[in-house]
Amino acid sequence: MALYQISVTLHLLAAMLWLGHMFVWSLITGPALKRVEPPQTAELLRERSVFMGAFGWPALALLIPTGLYQLAARGITLGDIASLSFLELPDGPVLAAKLLLVLWMVVYQAVWAHHRAPVAVYVNMAAALLILAASVVVVRGWE
């Protein structure tokens, strides 16, 4: 039980830090700093705000193994995922949607994450919100 709780804690922390960084920088602080005067100060602050780099790969390095561990704790193994037999479970389709969206986020991270890609960024954030919704349904059910 303790290992499961540690896994859930790490999973949630990784998600919150990665997605929090993504959403706040893209939607709030990045735009806010654009209009700081003078422009040289705006550029300095924006450059400083990203000095630690991105969080995607470190977060995924935690999210994927902890996610798989938590699935196994619920009786869904890698074999069940590979064979799609998990689709027969009551929340199988929702879980499938979540896993496909996670796959999209991995592809986004590999292809677009460190390049200018305004459309892909917003698609990625929408995927993140859908993953959160699917997670709520998997853990708490529909009603």
């Binding site: 919150m16 997605l19 929090g20 959403f23 706040v24 630690m52 919100l129 959160l132």
Partner: peptide, 19 residues
Amino acid sequence: VASLLVTGYTLFWAIMALA
């Protein structure tokens, strides 16, 4: 979602202070 945004918000301030 609100918690995620609060996390990102406090992370932003901590990173700015550090940088």
